[in-house]
Each structure stands twice: as C-alpha cells, then as structure tokens.
Design a binder for these strands. Structure first.
Lengths: 115, 115
DNA sequence: TTTTCATAATACCTTTTGGTATCATTTAAA
DNA sequence: TTTAAATGATACCAAAAGGTATTATGAAAA
C-alpha cells in the first residue's frame, strides 16, 4: 500500500502514551528501562510503543553496551507540523471568519502537497 | 479514562482518508454525498470517518433541509499545532545539533503543558 | 399522497492495536 | 566461568478500527 511520508508519524502520535514518551525524550535520551520507569505498563508494551515511534522516524535507537539509547528525532515532528501549516491561514488569518478564509483559499490554491 | 484536549484530534488525524477529507473541506464545505464522490469507499465508511472527525472537533455538521453540511473546524488543528510547537526549538534552533538543543531544553523547561 | 433522494443506523467481518506473560539472547560483573 | 542485568522476540488476548451490506428515516418533488 502507498504511504505518505508523514503517515508513520501521524500514526505514532495517535497514542497518548507515545506522545508522552516523546515529551520525556525531549528532556534527555533514555534507555528502555528509564522510559519504563515513567509508566505503569509492562516493558513489553513500552517496547512496542518504541518500535512504532521508530517506524514513524520519531526516534532513533543507538546500542551502547548492553543498553540501547532511545533518542528523539525531531524532523519527523517537523513533517507533521509542515502538514498542519497548510491549514494555518484558517486560524491566523486577519480575515477572522472561516467562510472568508475558505473563499480566499479557493482562489489561491488549486493543488498542494497535502492533496 | 482521561483524555487530553487534543487526543480526539490526534486520533482522527491518524487515518490518511480522514486527513484527505480535511484537505477537501479546506476548499469548501460539503455534504456527505459530495465527500463520497471524492473517495472509492462506501458511504457508510465515509460516514464513520466524518463521525470520528466530528468527535475530534475537526469538523462541525449543519443540517440544511435533507442535507447535512460538513464544515472544517480549524481550531482543533491549531490545538495539534500548538502541541507540536513545544518541540519546534529542536528544528528551528540556531544551535543546529540535537544534543545541544536537549541540554538547552533541560535548563529552561521543567514542567510544561505537554507533560 | 406517493415516490425519490440524502442521509442515519445497525449487524457483521477482518485486521490492527495495546496490552500481558513467557522465554531467549547478549553483555557486564562477581 | 557463572550469574545477573538489559533487552529482544513470541504467542496470546480483548477491544478498537476500517470496511461492507442492508435496513430505516425524513424531507423534497412529482
């Protein structure tokens, strides 16, 4: 099946535990054990979340002795932010009302990366 | 169960068909029938996607005679963009490398809305 | 009033998801 | 060289997701 570049990241972000893990990794990189200490689920569950985060390129994993360091990879988050930015004129527009913003959008945009 | 304000939106955005629907609704509001015309799935499937988008406050639905108009609600997207912005210093930082950005983050941030 | 059109609702099916428990593997330490 | 620690892998389970087909409703049109 076809997957857009950001699909893996959107999928990973859908789960609150995974978003929480990203917040923790934004403070410092961690081993799996250290991530587990911050949640009340089993190591196996945490491991699965880390795999999904890795598949979405939101983290990278680096072996170090018998440990494995999990590190935030912010560029995948930027991919998501970029997708959202396509809609940003709806909320930071000076027009102030949605109807006008959509009409303005219809005039200016026919094709786009989100389509 | 506790749900953060943005949980419904993140959940809705995880599916590529639903993201596509939002792109279409950014062009103009549409009835369900008009949304269906743009996809190769059944009306029932589209309806379910619209319900999930509505649950995430990403769209609102407005009865009009025997039709129901689906309208983009951009503020829920802003909620998601705001969550992501917490991480933005990792990619737009002048520091340029992640290690420094995380160390800088450790100094400046102890608690935050994402935590 | 009787159709017809746009939509809602429900039952059902398969795959994915989020979790557990258990066993295997690899590396550091005694 | 054993032993302990950190992690990986697998089988299993219940619930949620994404889809279909079918039936029901409610408003517009003939």
């Amino acid at each position: 099946m076809m997957h857009s570049a950001e699909q893996g990241a959107f999928r990973a972000l859908a789960d609150p535990t995974r978003r929480q893990i990203l917040v923790h990794l934004a403070q410092s990189e961690m081993t799996i054990g250290e991530v587990c200490d911050r949640f009340d689920i089993t190591r196996g569950a945490v491991k699965k979340h880390l795999i999904i985060l890795e598949e979405g390129n939101l983290i990278s994993v680096h072996p170090k002795g018998r440990e494995r360091i999990n590190r935030l990879e912010p560029m995948a988050l930027k991919t998501v932010a970029d997708w959202l930015e396509y809609f940003s004129h709806f909320w930071d527009s000076k027009l102030g009302d949605l109807k006008s913003a959509i009409e303005s959008n219809q005039k200016s945009t026919k094709e786009n990366d989100n389509g």
